[in-house]
């Protein structure tokens, strides 16, 4: 069982600024959950694309309702891999990000394509897809709902972080109006999913006792 999600967003900066910001985006005020960042592989291909692999450590707190189902003393952090290909000729950047820790409990895989916005060439479009799955017996649906809600709220943080770094690179005070609106929406969605996940979890628990 895999939950699929996709969305398209954009940044009001040109592709080269966004690609540059991609490598400089940590830390930012919205990245408190990112603890470490490393480049562990990097190579320029013969056709002049840049391939990189970034290793990230992020905090990974389980929701309270799920704690009793998880192994005691489960690590509170997770290792994430992010592979990317930057193609300066095609003006595209493709990234693939996934967790290599706790993958049985929850696996989140994200694919993003960054490219020039077809309607406004000084903006950058981001097509985002995500696959969320869980192999926790009886709880996979609840974990997926939780994972999706958290994924969506992390997308908002990623975009706000990007906007912050881009503004900093351009020597401006970050504008927040658009991003703030998105946060409120994401919070509402997260809350709705949390309620749903709790429901599913209590159903699963009841089933276990039958």
């Amino acid at each position: 069982m895999v939950k699929y999600f996709s969305c398209t967003g954009f940044l009001k900066s040109s592709w080269d600024q966004v690609f540059l910001a991609f490598w400089q985006r940590y830390p930012n005020p919205y990245s408190n959950h990112v603890l470490t960042e490393d480049i562990i592989f990097r190579e320029v291909t013969p056709d002049n694309c840049l391939m990189s692999r970034r290793l990230l450590t992020k905090t990974s707190r389980a929701p309270r309702w799920a704690e009793r189902f998880l192994p005691a003393h489960m690590a509170q952090k997770a290792y994430i891999l992010e592979d990317s290909v930057v193609d300066p000729q095609g003006r595209t950047m493709t990234t693939l990000t996934w967790n290599i820790s706790h993958a049985r409990v929850m696996s989140v895989e994200e694919r993003c394509v960054y490219k020039v916005n077809p309607e406004n060439s000084s903006w950058t479009e981001i097509e985002r897809e995500a696959w969320i799955s869980s192999r926790l017996y009886g709880l996979s649906k609840a974990v997926q709902e939780f994972g999706l809600a958290r994924f969506k709220s992390n997308v908002t943080k990623t975009m706000k972080g990007f906007e912050f770094i881009l503004a900093k690179m351009q020597g401006e005070t970050p504008t927040r109006t658009l991003a703030e609106t998105a946060t409120v929406k994401a919070r509402e969605t997260a809350l709705a999913a949390k309620v749903k996940a709790k429901d599913l979890a209590s159903q699963a628990q009841k089933k276990q006792y039958v």
Binding site: M1, V2, K3, Y4, I40, F41, M51, R53, L55, Y79, L81, D83, V85, T94, L96, W98, I100, E109, W131, S133
Partner: peptide, 23 residues
């Protein structure tokens, strides 16, 4: 990475195994 036992050995570039979405 070795000391912390982080499992990155042999992971293909751009290639975690992906199950197909069920919907």
């Amino acid at each position: 990475i070795k000391e912390k036992d982080i499992p990155i050995e042999g992971v293909e570039f751009m290639g975690p195994s992906r199950e197909k979405p069920d919907s």
